[in-house]
């Protein structure tokens, strides 16, 4: 008896549910309906975002494909590429060292200028300057950062080189030289270091400073022993980004550092950097598929890998060593 009663109860319940469902369907359907227009728009926006991935893929594909053509040639081996001390692909000399050393020397000079000056400027702006002074001085650094690199190249050639020649003599300083390019590159990178470091310093909570002052530290002691260590990861990241910028910089070295690869460690001599070489070779009417064309892509690949590694390191420093304060 009990069973049949249950069955009828169930049936009644089912019917009621069915009724309710049809009723609500007739009134308003609250379920999400697919809208074609919205889907198409979302797809289009996704394509826009995917273009950036395509760009990366394109860069890697282009560089690797043509660099491989270069390395497949009989006279080229990876070993020769990294150890030979002469670069002249037409005659089979394929050592990247002269270009690499010029790149490193100019970047190193730039770093020697940009790091201390940039960090000093950042500490002043973040720890010493009043609101008003900062508002006055920061735009000037921003202007410095916005000057196109070709203008810096002109500056290196028409100002820095004559100055160096006047200081050290025309016999020691060549017209085109790495020192002039490196120094001006340092000035170009200075605002980048300053603004990234200042961001890092400003992110340190003010309680830390107040604590230090409370213990009797001077402003300098607070800045250098408390704030600076707390912001170290951001500052390191700024240094590495600056290095990557220096390595990839083209116009200053193309104009001022000299045309023609040369393995020299004397900064007053002319030597062509990787970027300068790429710019010079591709500026002429270079024929596709020639050994020079392919060799330029091998240099480009090396350059790309160098800057990518630097950028990845800087990114991971920020993530791993960031001091978190609540």
């Amino acid at each position: 008896m009990v069973n049949t009663k249950d069955v009828t109860m169930d049936q009644a319940r089912l019917e009621a549910r069915e009724l309710a469902r049809t009723a609500s369907a007739q009134a308003i359907d609250f379920r999400r309906r697919p809208r074609l227009g919205e889907t198409i728009i979302q797809a289009l926006l996704f394509i826009c975002a995917a273009i950036s991935i395509l760009t990366t893929v394109g860069i890697v594909y282009v560089l690797v494909r043509d660099a491989l053509l270069f390395f497949k040639l009989e006279e080229v081996t990876l070993w020769k590429f990294f150890t030979e001390t002469m670069w002249a692909p037409q005659i089979g000399a394929v050592g990247i060292l002269p270009l690499l050393s010029a790149t490193l020397i100019t970047s190193l000079i730039a770093m020697l200028v940009a790091l201390p000056l940039g960090l000093g400027a950042a500490i002043y702006l973040s720890e010493y300057a009043s609101q008003r002074v900062r508002g006055l001085l920061k735009p000037i650094l921003e202007i410095l950062a916005g000057v196109p690199t070709v203008v810096y190249g002109y500056f290196a050639l028409t100002f820095m080189t004559p100055v160096l020649q006047a200081l050290f003599g025309r016999d020691t300083v060549q017209v085109y030289n790495m020192a002039s390019a490196g120094l001006v590159m340092g000035i170009m990178i200075l605002p980048l270091v300053a603004s990234m470091s200042e961001d890092a310093l400003a992110a340190v909570p003010s309680q830390l400073r107040e604590g230090a002052y409370g213990l009797g530290a001077t402003r300098f002691e607070t800045a250098v022993r408390v704030v600076l260590p707390a912001a170290l990861s951001g500052i390191l990241a700024a240094f590495i980004v600056a290095m990557s910028r220096a390595v990839g910089e083209t116009m200053i070295v193309a104009l001022a550092a000299g045309a023609g690869p040369a393995l020299t460690f004397n900064p007053f001599q002319a030597a062509e950097t990787m970027t300068g070489h790429i710019a010079r070779i591709t500026s002429g009417d270079i024929s596709y598929g020639s050994i020079q064309y392919d060799s330029v892509f091998a240099i480009g690949l090396a350059l790309f890998v160098m800057t990518l590694i630097l950028n990845i390191i800087s990114g991971s420093i920020v993530r791993r060593f960031r001091e978190v304060y609540d």
Partner: peptide, 13 residues
Amino acid sequence: NLAGVPSIIYGML
């Protein structure tokens, strides 16, 4: 990462 790629590499692309 793309923002850090040297501009001359874009030229090669």
